[in-house]
Structures are given as structure tokens and as C-alpha cells.
Design a protein around this nucleic acid. Sequence first.
DNA 1: GGTATTTTGAGGTACGCAACTCATTTTGAG
DNA 2: CTCAAAATGAGTTGCGTACCTCAAAATACC
Lengths: 347, 347
Amino acid sequence: MAEETVSAALTLKDIAREAGVSLATVDRVLHNRPGVRPDTVRRVQETIARNAFQPHVAAAELARGRARRFAFVMPSGPNPFMQQIEAYLGEMSAWLLARRLSVEMVATDVFDPSVLAASLDALSGDYDGIAVVALDHPGVRVAINDLVEAGTKVVTLVSDVPSSRRHHYVGIDNIAAGRTAGALVGRLVGQKSGKIAIIAGSQGLRDHAERIFGFNQVMASEFSHLDILPLLEGRDEDGRSEQLISRLLGKHPDIIGLYNVGAGTQGVAKALTEAGREKQIVFIAHDLTAMTRKLLLQGTLDVAISQNPGHEARAAVRVLLSLARNEPILSEQEKIRIDILMRDNLP
Amino acid sequence: MAEETVSAALTLKDIAREAGVSLATVDRVLHNRPGVRPDTVRRVQETIARNAFQPHVAAAELARGRARRFAFVMPSGPNPFMQQIEAYLGEMSAWLLARRLSVEMVATDVFDPSVLAASLDALSGDYDGIAVVALDHPGVRVAINDLVEAGTKVVTLVSDVPSSRRHHYVGIDNIAAGRTAGALVGRLVGQKSGKIAIIAGSQGLRDHAERIFGFNQVMASEFSHLDILPLLEGRDEDGRSEQLISRLLGKHPDIIGLYNVGAGTQGVAKALTEAGREKQIVFIAHDLTAMTRKLLLQGTLDVAISQNPGHEARAAVRVLLSLARNEPILSEQEKIRIDILMRDNLP
DNA sequence: GGTATTTTGAGGTACGCAACTCATTTTGAG
DNA sequence: CTCAAAATGAGTTGCGTACCTCAAAATACC
């Protein structure tokens, strides 16, 4: 009778034996520690590659002892989107605890570059990884690069700083989001012709500017028969947005579409319903909140374009963890999709 | 100077001390082993709860030694959707290896209840968890229940068997998907009136039947001015679907909307373009493949309703793993969304 | 009361790796 | 060839849990 061939998973010891070196040397190679001849490094790495060896993540985690600390740098003040991210992190607490990970929230004024940069500087050295809702500004870029230089893993969240050396961006392509909004407005107004209104928080916000850009791109190239009204800026405030839209509706009885790029959706909706035109005007906005959900079900809001905040929170944690462990990232998994939410596919 | 308060994570030893029992007893409680007085069990559990203690997953994983084995029971034959799931599992191979997990594919005729049930029976005892694309049939239900009874974790994938004792379902709500399709057709045809065509693989397939149900529901309640043509059955084959649609288009010059419930989208698209009516007719189908992607970009297909196969593959693995570890499941994370994909939000 | 049974304690081993020390060997420069 | 520096080997310890054995204590039963 043949002996049973037990294909037990390989261990570092097996790699050491096969490469003809000691465990200590394999360990040095694996962690880029100095004191190994380039020749030997190659030999060990080849053995690892040939056997498709992966260190047992549980053993590695257990052996390193210290827990990993991550920080989420988020805007201060009451921002529903950010509050959702925080809530989803809370839902993960058992998951985090079982892995001995700690995630701390750091609130700061992310809209002031020097304040944000100072906040980031202050975190240096204390954390293994940092997720930050960042403004794209030279000072912030430098602060991020300093963190990376010091060995901290950095992930930008929701808003990217592409010119920095951050390891990863967790968020959507806002130009594509704007294009999606444009295509939906154009398609949903049907054969009618008329005016399209567009309101944003501010053109100075990178994500808003990008959405507007994508929106205009599609409107110009595919729905040029529609008349786009000049952009309004509502500063993401309900009151101001309502005022602006009310006035606009009064002036233009032939508005058939409305795109709200940023927050303040409640104000916009109020203006629409008070004018009694919520059924005639195609209304598209961003993000799924309790309020936009209600508006979708009522029919006031036709489409909500959304990025899943739960997914973003979890993806940021997973990416930071993979980076800290020197594990490959499942890019498909961590990519944030542009969700088109209508009444019937509400999650 | 005050001593530093090191808040090291709790261990089983700490729980044992605080509960006034030995490590062995805590272990017995934690793993539901017999030989502990109910009174003591409660005391230990309370201590665990009071401290929000979570066993260190890495230590637990390392200590148990044996690797976990999972099986994916999938339809045999060339099914692009299933091939995608397989491909995504392949992308996870490093991730799986690092956790010493093995995932094996088992192809079978999932459309024959007795064959499927026999396949499931044959797997009993060999696996820690099984994900299965299951037919909803009494024989299959029994096979699933037997597996659960024997301690195997079972997850239904894409197609559910709600009456069984499976631990979890990874897939979408197909009624909601049909409703979404209906709402989109209704909205996108605009003010026009005319006929709506609908073609499915077979009404006998549970997912198809559910989508049709949802679709008709919305059409009846909200777009009753549209004339729904009798359902065609294309058996998910391109050739047959093309024939059926060609004939239908010839008979009805006033078709303005078309919903393909199942596969065979290529055939349907061919019939549309050969009739030269791909721009006039709103066309909605399911799933994102290389082909539907092309059709979306061309404008032949207006919307693809999709469930992310990568997400489904990963969610199934994660859920099986969490179940095997007796860990809580992050339900938000594992919920599969109904994706509305248009040209501008293609992933 | 004594005996059988149940419950609990004490302790050990193993899992695979990180991180470290110290001794030894090899290499390279002069 | 000599000596210093670099490279490598050999070994230890500890991480927190699972799983096991055996003895001791507590309890139940008659």
C-alpha cells in the first residue's frame, strides 16, 4: 500500500531547506532586513516564487505582538455622509477587535489646507495607517508624503490627492459620476425640450467641479438641444439652496430637469414641491440618506447617484490592513462603484 | 508620576481569572463542550460579554491546525456568469493561500434536482462549507438540510432555496430586479406610447419567474398605458432568441421597449440591429459581460441590470469563513446590490 | 455515610512566524 | 596571508488559542 501523500501547506522552514539556507536568512529576505548577499536574496525569492509560498497570515499576525493602529481623519461638523462612515466603522467593531485592530477618528477642518496638514503632521509615528478625506493642495500633499516617507500607510478617502504619494484612493471617479447624472437627465426628460438647472455647493470643491465637468460634457455632446442654465452655488446648505431654486423656478417655467451636485437636497426638494412641479421636473441628486430615500419613494427625486459609504469605510480599513501586512490588494473588491439608485433598487 | 496604563487586549486567561474559573473551563464554555454546570456557563458568558471579549482570530486560526475546505457547486457547461465567478475565485488565490483555505469547484447539472441532490450528498463530511447554485426543489432542500445537520455550513449562491435550512443566501432579490427593469423601461420610453416586448429563458426558472413578476407588477401599476406583449421563451440561447425577436419585430412596428430577462442578449441585439431599430427601442438586459459592455457603449443596450459576480464570489467565501469561525457576519457588506449599469458608470 | 458521577483545575503541547542574540563561517581588502 | 567586515547559522522566546490528559474536588444518589 502506498503511503498517504499529505500535501500539508509549506512553511518557512520548508523554504529554508529548499533554498539551502537557514530560517534566519529567509526571515531577513522576507522582511528586507540587511546583511544578505544579493545572490542569496535572489535564491530565496526564487524558491518562494517557485512554490507560490505565502506566509500564514494568522501566524504572522500572532507573532508580531503589537496591535495595529489606524486613524480616520474626517471633517468636523455635522456631515451626514461622514456620520454614516463612522457608523459603519462602529458596526465593524467586533471584526476589528477579533483582529486586534484599533481605528480612531480624528476630526479636523479638512477644508483648511494648513489645519489639515498640521493635523496629519501631528499623527506621524503614532499610527500604522491613516485614511484621510483630503483637500488637493500643495501643503496637504507634502504632509501626506511625509507620512509615507515615515513608513505610515496612507489612503485617501472620498476625495483624492492624486499628485501625492498616497498608497491608494478609496472613492469614486467624480467625472464619471457627473457624466452618469447627465446621461440620466438627458434620457429621462424624454422628447421634451426645455431648460436644465444645475446647482452645486461650490465650484471650488474638487469633487463638485469634476461632477459639473462630466455633466456638461455629456450634455454638450449628446443633448445639445437642451438649454443648460448657469450654475448656482448653494454652499451645500438647505436654506440657501431652496431660495436659489425657488427664484429660478419662478423665472423659468420651462425647466424640465434639475441636477443637484452636492448636498442641500432637502432644500432643493422643498422648492420643487412648493412650486408644485416635482412631478414634471426630472430631479437627480447625490448620496443615499434617510431623506433622499424618502424623496425617492415619494417620486420627488428620480435618481440618487451614490457611493456606498459602508463599502468605503470597510474598503479603507481592508486596504490599510493589506498595506500594513504587505499583502496584495484585491483591487476589484476595493473599487468603489457609482451606484444608480431608483425607487425599486434601494438597498 | 503615574504608571503607564497599558490597555493590552484581553486574553482567555484574563477571562478565566475574572470569572474565577480555570482556562479549561472557559475553553469548554467557548466551544460548547459538555461537562460544565449551567450556572458556571452563565458566569463565564457574562464575563465574556461584560468585557466585550473576542478571541484573537489569528491565534484561533493558528491553533486549530487543519486547513478549512470549501466547495463551490456550480452548473456545468459554458455559462459566462459562472465562469466569471470562477475567475474571481482565481484572483483570490493568494488571499486564500495566506489563510490556508482551499476552495474547490464542483460542476454538476444543477437543473436536475436528483443529480444536484446526489452531488451534494457526495460532498458530505469532506468540507467545512459549501456554496451552491441551487434549484428550489424538495429533493435539493433535503440534501441541503442533511449537510447542515452534519455540521457543514451551507450558502446558496445566485439562486436561493428559502425553505431549506441554509445558513445564508448570497444573491439579489430578483423581484426587485424585475421591478427595476420595469421602472427603467417605463421611464426611458418617455411620453411615447406603444408596445413592450419581454423575453426570458424559461418561466420555470425561479429567478426568471421572479423578475417577470416584478416587471409586470410595475408595468401594471405605473405604466398601464403601455401594451405588454406576451412573454417569449428563448431558452437562454442566442439563436432562438434572435429568431423570436426578429419575428416579433416584423409583426409589431410599434414596439418601443424590450426587456430580456435572462441570457441570449447577443441574439436579441442582433435581431434589433438587423431590423435597424436599435436606436428607437429601449433595450434592457441583465448581467455585465464583455458583450453587454460593448452593446452599452454602442448604445444598442440602454441599461444592464447586474449583480456583481466578483462580489458574490468573495461574499460567499467570506460568509462561509465567518460561519466556520462562528464569527458574526457583516450583513451590510455581504448584501448583493442590484446594479444599474449604463454607459457612463461602467466599472 | 459512602460511592458513583459530574465538574473543575492544572498543565502540557502544538500551531507558524517575528524578532532577537550570539557564535561561526565566508568574503574581501590590503 | 591576515584581519576586519560582512554574511550566515543556530537557537530561543513568545504571541493566544485549541485540544488533550489526568488528577482532584464537588456534588448527587442511595
